[in-house]
Design a protein around this nucleic acid. Structure first.
Lengths: 127, 127
DNA sequence: CAGTTATATCGACGCTTGTCAATGTATGTG
DNA sequence: CACATACATTGACAAGCGTCGATATAACTG
């Protein structure tokens, strides 16, 4: 059973996010013709984060937002979801390594992690 | 509530698979800054198919197989899964438009749908 | 025809997930 | 200090998902 340990990235992080860990491994010359089970679990955890329409919309809205960032209060209305649900989805995207969270005052600003989309497409192309 | 209708692609298909439908829409100039709910559901259904480690391994093994195709009996052992489970996963990948199924005699040969990986990465890049 | 093989489908079982209401935690304001 | 605001966390519930055993289907073999 695969269990991933948290991935709390507050400031500097020692634990690698799934996107980082998976794309790190996928760039090493493995010699293996097909990916092993551990690599598959690592990559699947990234696609799991993308496997929800509301989370895709969150990424899309954040990406197209002014300054490339948005706070929760900007996101709850276009998705027609409750604030706890939006926070829940955002956490999943942060844990996957796709979004970055920065707290300024009372607000939490979410933005795309630079290069995370490219690293994710790499997980597909290097299957 | 999103409900997808089957996507049986036996031979020629009139119904578009999620990868096709989603990538078709993502190439039209929408003018919209962020994707709408329907587009999000379409794309999410593709990533749902990728959100399982065993299905990623199936894609990987099929891709690296001789001739680019493999039958169920070749896939059940490396995954350490029962035959019904492997058939189940393969059906999900076929319905998503990622795998192609061709029956020859008693065997069913699965192969990557050409360009499906590229169309899927496009669903990410055009978020 | 009966028997075998490869695959698909069905039904059931636990586990996971998306959602919400309620509550907790900071941070700012007066 | 009390109060308000923005967000996170908790607990609960229904729905969905991955897996299996059992069974069905279809094609080859004799």
């Amino acid at each position: 059973m695969y269990v991933h340990n948290g991935c709390m990235n507050s400031g500097r992080t020692l634990e690698l996010t799934p996107v980082d860990a998976a794309s790190e491994a996928c760039c090493e010359p493995s010699g293996q013709p097909s990916i092993d089970d551990y690599e598959a679990q690592l990559r699947a955890s990234v696609f799991k984060a993308l496997a929800d329409p509301n989370r895709l919309r969150l990424l899309s809205i954040v990406k197209s937002s002014d300054g490339g960032e948005a706070c929760v209060c900007d996101l709850t209305e276009p998705l027609n979801l409750g604030q706890p649900t939006v926070s829940h989805h955002l956490k999943i995207l942060v844990d996957a390594g796709l979004l970055h969270r920065e707290k300024r005052g009372t607000w939490a600003y979410y933005s795309l992690v630079p290069g995370s989309i490219e690293r994710t497409t790499g997980l597909l192309e290097s299957l």
